[in-house]
Amino acid sequence: MKFGILVNEGPFTHQASDTAYQFTKAALEKGHEIHRVFFYHDGVNNANKLSEPQSDDRNLVRLWSDLGKEHDLDLVVCVAAALRRGIKDEILAEGFHISGLGQLIESGIQADRLVVFGD
């Protein structure tokens, strides 16, 4: 089955991105396809490669980036939400790219399920 994933929160204030990551990983392990992971609201902060968590904390930016690399995931950061939060191309972690909200709607149309993670 093909899943679309929407992540509405960043890596540190809320658990939403952690849950989305664990869900996405479990879906891939079960042989499902991830159509796209779309980052909206503060979720755009998941793409910030300047983020430096403490050494004993998980690094969600890197985890998303690595999962994206391993499974060739489409990690899309919303341009409108990103710009107002200072997330630009030059600070995007590997695998993320910036695009419009239309990519989220498209995922809703093309995926079999759209799953929302937020606050």
């Binding site: 509405n8 869900f23 879906a27 079960k30 079999d112 399920r113 759209l114 799953v115 937020g118």
Partner: peptide
């Protein structure tokens, strides 16, 4: 969680 999302036709998150 993944199985439930697949089993039900749509998912709604009460944020």
């Amino acid at each position: 969680f993944v199985d439930l999302v697949a089993e039900y036709e749509a998912t709604q998150a009460w944020l």
